[in-house]
Design a protein around this nucleic acid. Structure first.
Length: 1132
RNA sequence: GCGGAAGUGGCGUAAUUGGUAGCCGCACCAGACUUAGGAUCUGGCGCCGCGAGGCGUGGGGGUUCGAGUCCCUUCUUCCGCACCA
């Protein structure tokens, strides 16, 4: 049969799916290999031919590794939370979950038809509750951790509390907020719980703080720095402004140095590493305090010191050394050696000290300047980067190096967000300072002997210092060390490493994301209990902010935390909302169906009980007490462990003792008490150590209670009890009954993608994010393929979370992705027609071929690339394309209409989108796979051009033909292969191995073509050659190879794990080589010479040749270079 | 402005450590087969030149017997960062 790609591909895709051919093994003696693709966001547009590029490369690699005997993990999933589905929801009212589901179905269908060897049994979706349960869980671990600089790792917050209890804040070296308090152990113990929690929040790795954020009004959310480009949102391109807001952040800065040094240990593209280095932006320098000269009025500075909040960089007066009541301006500099050249200080207009430093005379000027800078947009500021402007505050500060008084200015070239928001201006060495000094007539003092500051600043580090007090005559290195030492001695400065990277804002005021597992009590955030995970995203009526400006979750009807009984052990069925049970209020919301559901969950709970519960149940049920008992019984929104309805007694077993859980249990007890139940609480240990004693206590209590009529107890809750007023002083009870408000923002898109590679290791684990065993086996990702657009987002955050997870012993590798390849972008290749413009500037019905447009007045129009072949317009198809072109006329060149071409982003609006479905339909998946690889180096960006695909398709037909006779009958011979045939085979065996190690897939495709061309040439149909060739080609073109593999008599499905053929160098040994003979470096001819000849003999042989003699013209060569097996060069 | 990557036929590209520049394809040209060709096969195809030959890897210079590859310089394109003290 002819090459029937459609039938073949369908058949084998079905076979692989049915037989789970690519399921990775969890236990095997084979070495592991983890090949990962960056999982896609399932957008509504589906895949275009650019998307599968990286997937094809990784799939070839994964298939190759299987042939090489590895246990390969090659999973796929979806990054399914995100803005587009939500924007669509806002417009249409369609629930994002539904849109997402539909988009995923499209993606899956498109991916399946390309024949990827994904292990779909491990699929993950970040928006699935059983996945984001663990995203929330990791968030909780971050909340419960702080960064101990002394240990250089994250540690449990409990360790910090223990330290505070023992020694106060002394001896703690943490990465934390700037304004942490100093206290003794006694002071700590004396603090209110609220104060302690407030203090701890300054240390937690995820924390809530008033921060300056990128606020995007159009999207109604904050954005992370990496989501903002040039002052506009990356998604949608809406303007972004700076705003102060209470926000969740991730203390990624704690890991700045490890993120930086870790780059040296991983095999990533250098440009990408460089981008991360720049983003982290480490600079080594010093902090220097410039004491403020006693101000005109004493009060303003004093007040400034009290402010001491937010981003204030005010140094409190140090132990008496400084002037009473005066503060200091702290600057960061990388050139402490230039301190003697400081002729003024500049602070950012937003700096806390601006107000107190401004003298009455300068007030108007300063205020005008601030108003002016505020008006400037981000873009204007950037456009004016070359100019400087500023205003004098009227105040002065003292240079600690030489005691000189220098003026303090404000200027917007100093950024509030970097360093301390203040700089010491050294005009001789810094161009910006130089311009500023020129502009405002400030002194420019050269400080290095070879410095030339006539026309511009000279930032040299060469030469010797002048005008520089105690460092005069020294060199850069010595001077820097000496200055810093001196400043330290004076208490006026210290060495400091500064990072450009900021903590990452973690909250988004959007709906379609992971809810943050936090509720608020007394204005402070508290984690919900682990057993209450996942905190399910609630339903809302609209996906918009509330009228009061709260995020969409503010619309959820019952979005509050009610400390509850044991949560149902099972995740809720997808599509059903469990929140009603977890958080909802049965009295208000529900009907009998709700109550029935609650009962179902109770039953589920019973099957999952603890040992202590079982022990107690066995004793209580057997009438040991003489009263009837119910287990896991629903009361209002709670499920009580044991209930004696007759007596109104509830028995609770407290399994946990950590603080939050106890709070929840306490609150629940109060509520139940309020409803008239007596609650007895025992710990698991009490029950297990002395079960009989516990039962005896229960019996005594039961005996002492009067019977209650509870036959209609549910009615009593729904009607009367709901209106019971809270007991006096019951603030907590109020909260417990009404519920504590949950956090209303959701997590950003990068939350779910910052750990997903671990979930693939153990995708269905209900008890852990992944089992220890799985993590220890798979360890890390050996090969990660994806786009470079994630350089400073996903790839940085993932490394951060990974390092954190390593610190708390959840994972074992410091870096998650050992080797990373950035696949290039496939760009669109747009085609144009040129509409003739008439004298009045109107478009006509005539279209001019591209080669002639210079002679006419035309305007270009995008035309669908799918109706164009080799840039020649099919005019009939064009007329049919759109009604408006029905009567089009054409000005042709050489009888053809040639279209114009331009490379643009692949996008619907340019009509240049090529859909892989169409390609697969027309040529098959194997052709698509090979052509995408054939286009060029994987890392390179290139425009998609379907024109060349025929070549690859012809190749596969030719390959198929090798196995068939002229009548398309399968015909393979058992003859011995010739030397030439073996050479062709072993060349390709080696070539594919070499190329794949270099990720040079395009050159392998070329080599396959060469091999098949050579074998076709000699009409080779020998099994001994072709069977190995099938194995070698199978990673690239798996379907056709599976088909031929079986035709060759092998068992179906064994090809994927067949051994890769062994390369034998003996087949490539040559006897002769056609030496290029060059004269003075120019190749003139080739001479066949035996490879056994040594250079001396080659020289003689060459000189003896008549052709060479012609060039020598009787002269003796000056010199001869002979490289054996390579070249002969004769120098005349 | 800073940092990075890259410039090779009409096009996509190829070229171990410095060793025959243009492999493999597309497009194009010529031919064969053919009722037909958007099928298949054969041949040609960097530029100039009838040819001998010369010139050619963005430009200029250098090192070398020999440079697409190494060094200097310059231009262009793309990407990232962008007043980061």
């Amino acid at each position: 049969m002819d090459y029937q790609f459609a039938a073949i591909e369908k058949k084998w895709q079905q076979f692989w799916a049915d037989h789970q051919t690519f399921k990775a093994l969890d236990e095997t003696t084979k070495p592991k290999y983890y090949v990962l693709d960056m999982f896609p966001y399932p957008s509504g547009a589906g895949l275009h031919v650019g998307h599968p590029l990286g997937y094809i490369a990784s799939d070839i690699f994964a298939r190759y590794k299987r042939l090489k005997g590895f246990n390969v993990l090659h999973p796929m999933g979806y990054d399914s939370f995100g803005l587009p589905a939500e924007q669509y929801a806002i417009q249409t009212g369609q629930h994002p979950a539904i849109t997402t589901e539909a988009n995923i179905a499209t993606y899956r269908r498109q991916l399946d038809q390309i024949g990827f060897s994904f292990d779909w049994s491990r699929e993950v979706r970040t928006s699935a509750p059983d996945y984001y349960k663990w995203t929330q869980w990791i968030f909780m671990q971050l909340f419960n951790s702080w960064y101990n600089k002394a240990a250089d790792k994250a540690e449990s917050i409990i360790k910090l509390v223990e330290h505070f209890e023992k020694s106060g804040s002394v001896g703690i070296d943490a990465v934390c907020d700037d304004e942490v308090l100093n206290f003794t152990a006694e002071e700590w113990k004396a603090m209110s719980d609220e104060s302690r929690q407030t203090e701890l929040l300054k240390y937690r790795l995820t924390y809530l703080r008033e921060s300056t954020v990128n606020w995007c009004p159009a999207l109604g959310t904050v954005l992370a720095n990496d989501e903002v480009k040039d002052g506009f949102s990356e998604r949608g391109g809406y303007p972004v402004e700076q705003k102060k807001m209470m926000q969740w952040s991730m203390r990624i800065t704690a890991y700045a140095d490890r993120l930086l040094t870790g780059l040296d240990t991983i095999d990533w593209p250098e440009p990408l590493k460089e981008m991360q280095r720049n983003w982290i932006g480490k600079s080594v320098g010093a902090l220097v305090k410039f004491r403020i000269v006693a101000p005109p009025k004493p009060s303003p500075v004093g007040r400034a010191l009290e402010m001491d909040g937010g981003e204030a960089k005010v140094s409190p007066p140090a132990g008496g050394g400084d002037l009473e009541g005066a503060g200091a301006i702290e600057v960061f500099t990388t050139r402490a050696d230039t301190i003697f050249g400081t002729s003024f200080l500049v602070i950012a207009p937003e700096h806390e000290l601006v107000k107190p430093l401004t003298t009455p005379e300068q007030k108007a000027e300063i205020e005008a300047y601030i108003a002016q800078t505020k008006k400037k947009s981000e873009l204007e500021r950037m456009a004016e980067a070359k100019t400087v402007s500023g205003a004098f505050t009227g105040s002065y500060a003292v240079n600690p190096a030489n005691g000189e008084k220098v003026p303090v200015w404000i200027a917007d070239y100093v950024l509030a967000g970097y360093g301390t928001g203040a700089v010491m201006a050294v005009p001789s060495g810094d161009q910006r300072d130089y311009l500023f000094a020129k502009q405002y007539n400030l002194p420019i003092v050269p400080i290095i002997d070879i410095q030339n500051v006539e026309t511009e600043a000279d930032p040299t580090k060469e030469g010797r210092y002048i005008n520089s007090g105690f460092i005069n005559g020294l060199t850069y290195k010595d001077a820097t060390a000496l200055v810093i030492a001196k400043l330290e001695e004076l208490g006026a400065g210290k060495a400091k490493i500064n990072y450009r990277m900021r903590d990452a804002i973690f909250g988004r005021q959007r709906y379609w994301g992971e809810p943050v597992p936090v509720y608020f009590k007394d204005g402070l955030p508290h984690l919900i209990e682990e057993k209450d995970l996942p905190l399910i995203l609630p339903e809302v009526d609209k996906y918009l902010p509330t009228e009061s400006g709260e995020p969409p979750l503010g619309r959820a009807e019952e979005w509050s935390y009610k400390p509850s009984g044991p949560a149902p052990s099972k995740s809720p069925p997808v599509g059903e909302t469990l929140n009603a049970y977890l958080t909802g209020n049965y009295r208000e919301t529900a009907d009998s169906a709700y109550y029935e559901r609650l009962k179902d969950y109770s039953i589920a709970n019973r099957q999952d009980s603890t040992e202590a519960e079982n022990v107690l149940w066995q004793l209580l049920r057997n009438d040991q007490t003489g009263y009837k008992v119910r287990r896991q019984h629903a009361i209002d929104q709670f499920i009580a462990d044991f209930v004696f309805l007759q007596k109104g007694l509830v028995i609770e077993l407290d399994g946990h003792h950590h603080k939050l859980n106890k709070e929840a249990d306490d609150a629940r007890t109060e509520v139940l008490n309020h409803f008239g139940f007596i609650v007895m609480r025992f710990t698991n240990d009490e029950v297990l150590n002395n079960p009989k004693g516990v039962v005896e206590q229960i019996k005594q209590t039961l005996d002492s209670l009067n019977d209650r009529d509870l036959t209609k107890f549910s009615d009593s809750f729904t009607k009367s009890e709901a209106k019971v007023s809270p007991p006096a002083g019951g603030g907590d009870l109020e909260g417990a009954r009404e519920g504590f408000q949950y956090e209303l923002s959701t997590m950003p898109g990068w939350a779910g993608s910052s750990w997903y590679w671990y979930r693939y290791m153990d995708a269905h684990n209900d008890n852990e994010f992944a089992s220890k065993q799985a993590v220890e086996y798979w360890k890390d990702v050996d090969l990660y393929i994806g786009g470079s657009e994630h350089a400073t987002g996903h790839l940085l955050y993932s490394r951060f979370w990974n390092k954190f997870m390593k610190d708390i012993n959840l994972v074992i590798e410091e870096e998650p992705f050992k080797k990373l390849i950035n696949q290039g972008h496939i760009q669109g290749r747009s085609n144009f027609v040129y509409r003739l413009i008439d004298d009045l500037g109107r478009g006509t019905n005539t279209f001019v071929s591209h080669g002639l447009i210079k002679q006419y007045k035309t305007s270009p129009i995008h035309v669908d690339v799918n109706i164009i072949e080799n840039d020649i317009l099919d005019t009939a198809k064009f007329k049919a394309w759109r009604p408006e072109f029905e009567n089009a006329e054409f000005i042709l060149e050489n009888g053809k209409y040639i279209c114009g071409v331009e490379v643009e982003k692949m996008s619907k609006r340019y009509y240049n989108v090529v859909n892989p479905d169409d390609i697969v339909k027309r040529y098959g998946a194997d052709t698509l796979r090979m052509y995408e690889m054939f286009l060029g180096p994987l890392e390179q960006s290139k425009p998609w051009n379907t024109n060349g695909i025929e070549g690859v398709f012809k190749f596969l037909r030719k390959f198929w033909k090798l196995f068939h006779d002229d009548s398309w009958n399968f015909n393979v011979s058992a003859d011995e292969p010739t030397k030439a045939e073996l050479k062709s085979l072993h060349k390709i065996i080696r070539k594919v191995e070499e190329d794949i190690d270099r990720f040079s897939f395009n050159t392998s495709v070329s080599s396959f073509m060469i091999a098949v061309n050579e074998l076709t040439e000699v009409k080779c149909n020998k099994r001994a050659i072709l069977q190995d060739l099938v194995v070698v080609l199978s990673p690239y073109a798996p379907h056709i190879c599976e088909e031929l593999w079986v035709l060759l008599g092998n068992t179906a499905g064994t090809l994927s794990y067949a051994p890769y053929p062994k390369f034998n160098a003996a087949y490539l040994v040559e006897d002769e080589f056609a030496y290029p003979i060059s004269i003075n470096g120019k190749t003139k001819m080739n001479l066949n010479i035996s490879l056994s000849l040594e250079p001396k003999d080659i020289e003689a042989f060459v000189l003896a040749s008549a052709d060479v003699q012609k060039y020598l013209d009787g002269k003796a060569p000056k010199k001869m270079i002979v490289v054996k097996g390579r070249i002969v060069n004769i120098v005349l």
